[in-house]
Design a binder for these strands. Structure first.
Length: 437
DNA sequence: TCTGGGGTCCTAGGACCC
DNA sequence: TCTGGGGTCCTAGGACCC
């Protein structure tokens, strides 16, 4: 394995990681004081637990448990639908509070942040632990939720710290104490090390994070790729991951998927779902002024067998009108009559900035301009009156089923949630097609 | 967890070129 | 035709995250 260049940042640094406790449930309790002290569950719309308050956790409820079981285990639980808009507001305010302490705040997910505290002791006239504690207190006072915090020499160690003592924990891991926190920590609990790498490391007798951290550099370079070499440095207190302050402004890919119950064998309905995925993905792409050069579509059957297709587009676009024909053709190639489908999905990838799009001699520029005008009008209408005001007719059959679900709409376009996925999307072994748009 | 819905980065290997 | 070396770009797929 070749050694990749890897920069270790000047150290020691003081990195803080903050993780809100049972975030969704805590927000509900903050907004509805009568729920404080009671077991609160969010996720009503999905039928499984998205987040559980600590009162609910105390009764043995964990994420993913079906609400049917919740009622058996904990009959007095208050079950509410997830209200992403409210959670996003709490999130924004939480990050604002953090920025009062340091400009170097990374919004890592809706309920997590990294803050670079290096050098701030002087202006705060106190140690890093005091700064962290003030942050916790401010958030508690102003937002009415609790957060857990870790402070250490690197992001990976700070994460271990914030997880060490939940809820409302504050854990400092100075360099001399690192081994105390790693020696009992299974290596797969380390941020960035998953079950696969843990299984690999086990073959070398590495079970704990400390055993991994103690391995010599030759071993690490010989057997592990760059991401794990980086984690190894971070565990040893050498910071390589910077705190990224810039907010996310672009995407490599944009995907939209939708699971529906019960599964459907109705071709029109299934295609309509796909069509709606495409429209939503395009809306997001246009919002970020991006155009796609590839379109991936896939269908998942009741038996979790995926079929998919990838298409290379002759011209970048973010307009469904350009993509419906390829979508239809691709769909016909992978759709099997008689199968029952539970999910459709669309991925726009190979995204390029809108303005760099160049037309070829063969493109009908007048037509393209016209569509560009139509869609900016559509985007404006949607902005003003709600996301699904204007549809393509091919997406309409989805309404037949979704209307009575309450049309809860998509989650806000914020990254993250509290999901811990197992290996999510099986690889599709996609055939690639070139299509003219 | 018998099953959400989003994302990212890295690497090996092939295609193609000189 | 065979042989050899070296570079770049692109892609599929793996692994991981919230």
């Amino acid at each position: 394995m070749t050694t990749q260049p890897l920069t270790i940042r000047s150290w020691p640094r003081a990195i803080l990681h903050l993780d809100a406790d049972a975030f969704f449930a805590s927000c509900e309790q903050a907004v509805h004081p009568e729920l404080r002290g009671r077991p609160v569950i969010t996720g009503k719309e999905r039928g499984i637990v998205a987040a559980a308050s600590y009162e609910a956790k105390a009764k043995g409820i964990t994420r993913g448990v079906s609400l049917y079981d919740v009622k058996k285990i904990c009959p007095d639980a208050v079950i509410v639908p997830s209200d992403y808009e409210t959670y996003s507001l709490f999130s924004v305010r939480m990050f604002e509070i953090l920025r009062r302490f340091s400009p170097d705040v990374e919004e890592y997910s809706i309920d997590e942040a990294f803050v670079d505290l290096t050098g701030l002791r002087r202006s705060f006239h106190g140690p890093y632990g005091m700064i962290a504690k003030k942050m916790q207190e401010t958030i508690g006072t102003e937002l009415g939720i609790t957060v857990s915090v870790g402070v250490s020499l690197s992001k990976v160690l700070a994460k271990i710290g914030s997880k060490h003592n939940k809820p409302h924990g504050l854990t400092l891991i100075p360099g001399r104490d690192i081994h105390l926190y790693l020696e009992k920590l299974p290596v797969e609990k380390v941020w960035g090390i998953g079950p696969n790498t843990a299984a690999f490391l086990r073959k070398f007798g590495i079970i704990t994070a400390l055993q991994f951290a103690k391995k010599d550099e030759q071993f690490i370079q010989k057997h592990l790729s760059k991401p794990y070499q980086e984690i190894w440095h971070e565990l040893n207190g050498r910071s390589v991951y910077p705190v990224v302050t810039e907010s996310k402004s672009s995407y490599q890919s944009i995907s939209k998927t939708k699971t529906f119950t019960p599964p459907s064998g109705d071709e029109t309905f299934v295609f309509a779902q796909l069509s709606k995925n495409l429209e939503n993905a395009c809306i997001k792409a246009r919002r970020y002024k991006l155009s796609a050069t590839r379109l991936i579509l896939f269908l998942r059957t009741q038996e979790f067998r995926d079929a998919g297709l990838e298409m290379k587009l002759s011209r970048p676009t973010a307009y469904p009108i350009d993509l419906f024909k390829p979508l239809r053709e691709g769909f016909e190639q992978i759709y099997r009559a008689g199968s029952r489908y539970r999910q459709t999905g669309v991925v726009l990838s190979g995204l390029v900035p809108e303005e760099t799009v160049q037309y070829t001699l063969f493109d009908d520029t007048a037509k393209i301009e016209k569509f560009s005008k139509i869609y900016s009008a559509v985007d404006k209408v949607s902005e003003k009156f709600g996301k699904y005001t204007v549809y393509h007719a091919s997406s309409l059959p989805t309404k037949l089923q979704t209307q009575h679900e309450g049309e809860r709409g998509d989650a806000p376009q914020r990254k993250g949630e509290l999901f811990k996925g197992e290996n999510k999307r099986q690889r599709l072994g996609l055939p690639v097609l070139k299509v003219k748009v």
